[in-house]
Design a protein around this nucleic acid. Structure first.
Lengths: 143, 143
DNA sequence: GGCTCGGTGGGGAAAAGTGGGGGAAAGTGG
DNA sequence: CCACTTTCCCCCACTTTTCCCCACCGAGCC
């Protein structure tokens, strides 16, 4: 199975629940993910297989650069393990939704090793004019 | 087995389904591909064996040039994993067909490591007058 | 002619997405 | 340790979408 791909808009219900897109569910039922805000504008959802190396690298960073400890701690403090319920939904705490401007609609975006969760409008604004400087690099990757 | 070669026109039915040319089917039944818009005028279809290195290089690009993240995210967001049904057809979402002007007919073109899907007319317009500047290079490859 | 294989079309069962009620569990205060 | 509140999550119900399966048609081969 390859990485996460595609984009899907789902409703956030009154209880803060959102259905994880079916194509992002790997195992049969009730899997769990790490929910964390890595970037300014979006939440990230890591399956355990992708999270493990991240965790290793974070510890490695602290070992080599102890001054990075506070920054790493701020990240881990606001991260969270979430599980799908029997209907395949995850619960996103209100606080986290506010951080990235999520309202009634959540856009799930496949980003290879992880899933990003965006407010649809913000995503459009952030990706509508990608920097053409990188086009040659990207083109050559697909050649 | 060598790369994809040849071109085949197939009908897109009312549900958005198109038969994958039989000569592009490798395994026995129900294989899956990555469907993505890499170029302006056509969709690309990667078998998993070709896709894996692409995925690696995309992640490498983001690691080395974080500003490329938005561009790569826009790509993966619009990409999609598609599987053939028991009749050997794939489903192309309406949105993707509009992006490259696909209507009732789809032209499948073998492009070595991947398959490209074109609107027949666009393909004719794009390839009828190739730049002769590169002819010597191409000729020398076959010498 | 009868067979197989590749391509095309449509009906219907199964899955995915959405919403709400209620019981269990966890957190809080006496 | 017991009551009360709040949060969580399981269950059921409903709608929409997906895709599985069957049937047909035509071309080429035995």
């Amino acid at each position: 199975m390859s990485g996460y791909l595609g984009s899907f808009v789902h409703q956030v219900d009154a209880k803060g629940r959102v259905a994880l897109p079916a194509s992002f569910r790997r195992g049969s039922e009730s899997e769990s993910f790490i929910l964390i805000q890595v970037h300014e504008d979006a939440l990230s959802l890591f399956p355990h297989s992708s999270w493990r190396p991240v965790e290793e690298e974070l510890r490695e960073l602290i070992r080599k650069q102890p001054e990075a400890r506070a920054g790493v701690l701020a990240l881990t403090a606001s991260a969270l393990e979430v599980s799908t319920d029997k209907q395949g939904r995850i619960l996103i705490p209100d606080r986290m939704r506010e951080l990235v401007g999520l309202r009634r609609e959540a856009l799930f975006v496949g980003a290879l090793n992880k899933i990003e969760i965006w407010d649809p409008k913000r995503f459009r604004d952030s990706t509508e004019a990608p920097d053409p400087k990188f086009d040659p690099f990207i083109e050559s990757i697909f050649a």
